[in-house]
Design a protein around this nucleic acid. Structure first.
Length: 505
RNA sequence: GGCGCUUUCGUCUAGUGGCUAGGACACAUGCCUCUCACGCAUGGAACACGGGUUCGAUUCCCGUAGGCGCUACCA
């Protein structure tokens, strides 16, 4: 049983954008598959025709392409266990539903949704199970001819799983250990609906995992309560010997307050909860995505991997290959993890630091151009190398360094008060003359010439440089002064200097 | 309500039957310095509570409380 080939799957419902929690579940499946040389399957669970959303499947695929999470098999990837979209597997499920029906392990029920609602309203804690099934309209209580007649006359029905009460059902979870429940608390779950000729999640899931030879089911904790039902289904089909091993992951919680992470938290606190921007086809509403918000995929992966899992060492910055090498389901934490978005921002900062200047410059270029500025790559790369350490997102580069491209039109009042003295105009005039006289305007040459001049005149470094900075930048920020003047060039430096003298006096 | 899962600094977490309970984010201070950042250094900060078991429990057991999830012809 344990020497089976590792085969795991990520099986979302195409009901909208992929939640970040789902991304993490997929990531853990991927890491586990790669770690054990197994296969990673992409299956679409579209058994609820009412909730289907156009474009969701493509969105999910695009998200994983961006993140670098790769599938081996499944929808759009091919494979020998297809089709991988549940809506295309109707005939397969019908066969297995019949098998259960014939074996007396499931039955046909005619109670309509509204009848069931009435029951629930009338009886509190009503549950369709061993204690109530004999009072309902189903193949257990009706004569076989009646059942046939109802079906023949077009009555819609569902197939329910007949749960034997009083059994101890044991789920051996790879993260949580042994979980035992009494089958009496389970209800007779709907397995199949005649209305759309599709199974529900529970049936489709078991049949597909079995047929697709899935070895490990790694999914969110919200599935833990139905895991015993799934065990019972494997048993009913006689598949218990090849039943996959289960691992239920803790959930992602709000950064603050109670409850699980939701889109509202992201909107409120200013971070995305979806990998890519999503345009809802029905409402037209736009939800922000990590990609568009300026996160690097490597940073998102690294952050997510550590949210609920830890290899046990003090290393936090890891590549996908590092994560694969270290991943271990047994080291996943059991309790829910708050979504610490500030730490995610720190990861992005670290990854920007580790990304080549040329790559950051390539990402930054369209932003510069959007401000109507033409810039050459070599210059932009130099600016990036000077500035990228101070930002968390590429788009923050613009605010941090727009002075390279645009001369100040006004001067920050606070800085002016502090840095522009009575004699600043005169000294800046001297500085301008000095710089003008330089044939070699290299950073090194400016540096030595200006230092020499300051020393000769007995000026202080601070008074000169700070006034100089105000003149070129318009405020008190930025890298070393000659890294600014050197890059904007002699002519521009002198223009800005002389304008400041004129304006500030 | 019922059932299940869960509980170490504010947050993510490491860890052990005997430790000064470790790291990271965030925060504070200092250093660096021509500014702002970055960076570096330092600091404050935790074993939910109550019972057991034990020579000794943060660690093992039970209970309580809190948190989370499920309780659909949704996944």
């Amino acid at each position: 049983m344990n020497d089976r080939k590792v085969r795991v799957r990520f099986a979302p419902s195409p009901t909208g954008p992929l939640h970040i929690g789902g991304v993490r579940t997929a990531l853990y499946n991927y890491l586990f598959a790669r770690k054990h040389g197994g296969d990673f399957i992409f299956r679409i669970e579209d058994t609820d025709s009412n909730r289907f959303v156009e474009g969701a499947e493509e969105y999910i695929l695009e998200s994983f392409r961006w993140l670098g999470v790769e599938f081996d098999e499944g929808v759009t990837f091919g494979g020998e266990h297809g089709p991988y979209r549940q809506s295309e597997r109707r005939e397969i499920y019908k066969k297995y539903v019949k098998q259960l029906l014939d074996a007396g392990k499931a039955y046909i029920a005619f109670d309509t949704p509204s009848e069931l609602d009435e029951k629930r309203a009338a009886i509190n804690n009503f549950q369709y199970d061993a204690s109530t099934r004999m009072q309902m309209r189903n193949s257990l209580t009706l004569a076989p001819e009646e059942v046939q007649a109802l079906i023949a006359s077009g009555h819609q029905y569902v197939v329910r799983f007949l749960v034997e009460p009083g059994q101890k059902v044991v789920v051996n979870d790879l993260i949580r250990g042994v979980v035992t429940i009494d089958s009496s608390i389970l209800d007779d779950k709907v397995l199949y609906k005649s209305a759309d000729e599709l199974p529900t999640y529970h049936l489709a899931n078991i049949v597909d995992d079995h047929l697709m030879e899935v070895s490990h089911v790694i999914r969110g904790e919200e599935w833990l309560p139905s895991a015993p039902l799934h065990v019972l289904l494997y048993r009913a089909f006689g598949w218990e010997d090849t039943m996959p091993q289960f691992a239920h992951l803790s959930l992602l919680l709000k950064p603050e307050g109670n409850g699980k992470l939701s889109k509202r938290d992201g909107d409120r606190l200013g971070f995305p909860v979806f990998p890519l921007e999503w345009h809802d086809p029905a409402s037209g509403a736009v939800s922000s995505g990590f990609r568009e918000a300026g996160y690097l995929p490597e940073a998102v992966i690294n952050f997510l991997a550590l949210l609920g899992w830890n290899p046990g060492d003090d290393v936090e910055l890891m590549t996908m290959d590092d994560l694969i090498a270290k991943f271990d389901l047994a080291k996943c934490s059991k309790a829910g993890a708050r979504f610490d978005y500030k730490k995610m921002i720190w990861f992005n900062h670290e990854y920007i630091l580790r990304t080549a200047d040329s790559e950051i410059a390539r990402m930054f270029k369209p932003i510069v151009e959007a401000h109507g500025i033409e810039v050459q790559m070599p210059l932009l790369e130099k600016i990036v190398s000077l500035m990228k350490g101070r930002i968390n997102f590429v788009h923050e580069l613009w605010d941090a360094c727009s002075f390279y491209f645009i001369a100040p039109t006004e001067y920050d009042e606070k800085t002016r008060k502090k840095r522009w003295k009575e004699d600043s105009a005169q000294k800046m005039g001297e500085l301008a003359d000095l710089l003008e006289s330089l044939d070699d305007f290299s950073i090194e040459n400016q540096d030595s010439a200006v230092h020499q001049w300051i020393e000769q005149k007995g000026y202080s470094m601070g008074e000169i440089m700070n006034a100089f900075r105000l003149a070129l930048v318009g405020e008190g920020k930025g890298p070393q002064m000659f890294d600014i003047s050197g890059l904007i060039g002699k002519e521009e430096t002198l223009t800005r200097l002389r304008r400041a003298i004129e304006v500030l006096g």
